[in-house]
Amino acid sequence: MKKLLISLVSLAALATFAGCGEQPQTITAKPGTSAAKPDDLPYGEGKLYADRNAWQLQLRARADTQNEYKRFN
């Protein structure tokens, strides 16, 4: 009888506190799970910029023109 009572109390406690746990509610994108078609790189053979370095240098130079302190001094 005592065993049954302990089991019942344990079960009741388990049921009572089951909803108290804080589950993480944030989801993050899993890399490599995209189903999209593979995109081609913005540089490479047949493109305006043959390699990544040339392309990056161009973009960096272009971004630098947004700095008027640099542009006018």
Binding site: A29, P31, T33, S34, A35, A36, D39, L41
Partner: peptide, 9 residues
Amino acid sequence: PVNCFYKTE
């Protein structure tokens, strides 16, 4: 739900 997004390098 259809995983249509991707991120470039």
